[in-house]
Nucleic acid binder design. Structure first.
Lengths: 346, 346
DNA sequence: CTGAAAGCGCTTACAG
DNA sequence: CTGAAAGCGCTTACAG
C-alpha cells in the first residue's frame, strides 16, 4: 500500500517535503532544517533525511519557499538590448560576479520599450528576486516609485534614474566624448560630424555635450545629426547626411552607429582616415580587424557589471546606508581610423 | 480603526487579495475571478474590485499563483554565452517571438559549463517556468531525464540532445561547412586549414566532417587544428599553427575563431585573400566592414529562435504529439575574403 | 534535538 | 452571479 503510494507520487508529481518526511520517518520540520542547514539536527537523522531526499529526488519548491518570505538568491538584470555587444558583455560580467556570490541572475531585455521594462520590473519585483540591476530605457521612470516602496533594492547601471533615489554606476560620457573629439581636432580635422540616435537618452546627451564643448572650444562649427528615437536611422539617411555635411571627421555616439557609418563610408567609397577620420564611442572586439582598425572610446563594461552586482548585494544584505553614485572613467583606444599610424597602436 | 489597518497594510507590505476583497466588500474568490478574467461576474462588482485593486496598487503574488499550479506564462532560455553574437541574436529573436505570444523569457547563460547548466535547469524546472529552450553545452545530458519526467516541455536549439527525447532545431552544419570549403577549393586553394575549438561539441564536429569530406573529395590533404575545450585557444597558438601549416586558405568553425584568425593574420602581415583566403562559419554584422569583408556561412539564427518558441509553446499548450527534429539550411554569403572580387557581393 | 500547528497568498472544487 | 472551506508546499514561532 505504501509502496503504491510512493510509486504514484513519484510519477504524478515532484516529491514534497511531506514525502521526504514520511520516508525518513521524521517530521516535515526536521526535513526543512536539513534542507536549510540549520544547526541542532543529530547526525543520524540528518543522514536519514538526506537519503530520503536523494531517493525521492526531492527538490524544494521555490514557489513555496518564496511564499514564506525566503530570499530567492537571484537578482534581476534588465538591459535594453542583448544583441548590442555593450550590453551582452555587461550581462556576461554581471553573471560572473553574481555567480561568485552564489546568486543566480534573471536576465531580461526591454527592447528600449518603457512598457516592456515596466512589465519585467513588475514580474521581478513581485518577490521573485532579491534585487534588480536596471539599465533604464527611459527618463520617464516614476513608475518605479511604487515598486521601490516594496523594499527591493535596485541599482541603476549606465544611466542614473531621473526621478528615483537609487545607487547608480555610470561612465564618464562627457569626458570620454570630449577626449575623442579633442583627438580628432589635434589631427587637424575641421568639419567634425557627430552622428547617432537615441539623442534624448541621458548618456547620449552627455556625449553630444562633450562633442559640442570640444568643437566650440576649438572654434569649429558644430555638425550634429542625431535621431531622437531608440532605433538606428536607416542607412540612406546616413548617406545623405554624409553627402550633405561633407565632414572630414566623424564622431559616432555608440557602437551600432559606428558600424553603420563604416558601412556607409565603404559604400560611398570614402577613404578612412584619408578622406574622413572616424572615432566611435564604445569599443568592440571586432574593431581590431575593421578596415581600418577603429579608434574608439572604451568603456569599462566589465567593471561596471561587476561593481553593480557588488553594490546591489551589499544593499540586499545590509539594508541601510545612503545611496552611492559611481562614475567610471573611459579610455581612448588609439588605432588607425582617427589618423594615427598603425605603429602607435596599443 | 479600519483606516489605520489599511494605512499600515499599505506601508508594511504589498496588498493581498484579502485586502482588495475587504476594500471592495466582496469575497477573495470574486477578486480572484476578476483578476483572471473569469466570466460570470457582474459588471458592478467587477468595477468595484478593479477600483480597489487600483487604490491598493494590488498585484497578485506570483509565488502564490504558482503554488496553485498556475502556469507562469514564462519560458526559460539557456545559452552557453551571451557575449557571443550568435547567441545574443538568438536570444533577441526568442524574446520577440515569445512576446508576441504573451510569454516572458527567463534568460540565463551557462558559460558552457554543464554544472552551471544543471543548476539553471533545476531552478527553471522547479515550476518557475512553463517550458525550456536549451542550447546544451555538453553531450552529457542524461541529467535532464529526471527533470523532464516532471512534464515540463523542452526544446533543444542548435544542438540536439544526445540521450534525451525532445524536439530540436538545428542547422545544416555539415552542408554549410562543405559548401564553404568547396568554394575555397573552387578558388584553386590547395592547403586549406580548418581552425577552431570546442571540437567535441556536435555542431563543431559536423562542421569538421563537412570540411574533411570536401577536402578528401577534392583529393587534397586535411589540415585540422581544433582544440577540444570550450575556450578559444590563445592567439600564440593560432600564430604558431599558421606558421606550421602555411595554408593558402583557412576555414574557421565559428565567429570567435574567425575574429581571432583575422587578428593573427593581420599581426603576421599575411594578406587576405592574396596570401590566404578565409571563410568563417557564422555570419556577423561586423563582417561587412572587416579588412577584407568576410565571406561566411550564414545561419538562420532568428528563424531558429522564433521557430523554437513556436514549437515549445505548441507543446506547452497541447501536450501530445511525437517529437520533431527540424534542420534549417545555411547560406554562403560571398564577400571578399574568399577571393571573390568585391563586385560579386550580395 | 524534534514536531504539531498556524499561516504565507492564492485557487480549485463545492455549495448556494 | 458569489463565497466559505480546504489545500498548494513550505517555514516561522511555540512547545516539548
Amino acid at each position: 500500500m505504501m509502496e503504491i503510494m510512493n510509486a504514484e507520487a513519484l510519477k504524478r508529481k515532484r516529491a514534497t517535503i511531506g514525502d521526504v518526511a514520511r520516508v525518513a520517518g521524521v517530521g516535515t520540520m526536521t526535513v526543512s532544517r536539513v534542507i536549510n542547514n540549520h544547526p541542532h539536527v543529530s547526525d543520524s537523522v540528518t543522514k536519514r533525511v538526506q537519503t530520503a531526499i536523494r531517493k525521492l529526488n526531492y527538490k524544494p519548491n521555490p514557489a513555496a519557499q518564496m511564499l514564506n518570505g525566503r530570499p530567492s538568491a537571484t537578482i534581476g538584470l534588465i538591459v535594453p538590448d542583448l544583441a548590442d555587444p555593450f550590453f551582452a558583455t555587461l550581462t556576461h560580467a554581471v553573471q560572473q560576479t553574481a555567480r561568485e556570490h552564489k546568486y543566480q541572475v534573471w536576465i531580461a531585455a526591454s527592447d528600449s520599450n518603457i512598457s516592456i521594462e515596466k512589465t519585467v520590473v513588475d514580474l521581478m519585483m513581485a518577490r521573485a528576486v532579491d534585487g534588480i540591476l536596471l539599465v533604464s530605457s527611459s527618463p520617464d521612470d516614476q513608475y518605479l516609485k511604487v515598486n521601490l516602496s516594496s523594499g527591493i533594492p535596485m541599482v541603476a547601471i549606465d544611466r542614473a534614474l531621473e526621478t528615483i533615489q537609487a545607487d547608480s554606476i555610470e561612465v564618464e560620457n562627457y569626458q570620454g566624448s570630449r577626449s575623442a573629439v579633442d583627438h580628432l581636432i589635434a589631427h587637424g580635422r575641421k568639419k567634425i560630424l557627430c552622428l547617432g540616435y537615441n539623442g534624448k537618452q541621458s548618456t547620449i546627451a552627455q556625449r553630444i555635450k562633450g562633442y559640442r564643448d570640444a568643437v566650440k572650444t576649438a572654434g569649429l562649427g558644430t555638425l550634429v545629426d542625431v535621431a531622437e528615437g531608440a532605433d538606428p536611422p536607416a542607412i540612406q539617411n546616413l548617406r545623405s547626411a554624409l553627402r550633405k555635411h561633407k565632414p572630414d571627421a566623424i564622431f559616432t555616439l555608440n557602437n551600432v552607429s559606428t558600424l553603420h557609418v563604416l558601412e556607409a563610408l565603404q559604400e560611398l567609397n570614402i577613404g578612412v582616415p584619408s578622406d574622413v577620420a572616424v572615432i566611435g564611442f564604445d569599443d568592440v572586439e571586432a574593431w581590431r580587424v575593421t578596415h581600418p582598425p577603429l579608434t574608439a572610446v572604451r568603456q569599462p563594461v566589465r567593471e561596471m557589471g561587476s561593481l553593480a552586482v557588488k553594490i546591489l548585494l551589499d544593499r540586499v544584505n545590509n539594508a541601510g546606508s545612503s545611496f552611492t553614485r559611481t562614475t567610471l572613467p573611459t579610455r581612448l583606444i588609439l588605432r588607425a581610423s582617427c589618423g594615427c599610424s598603425m605603429e602607435q597602436n596599443q
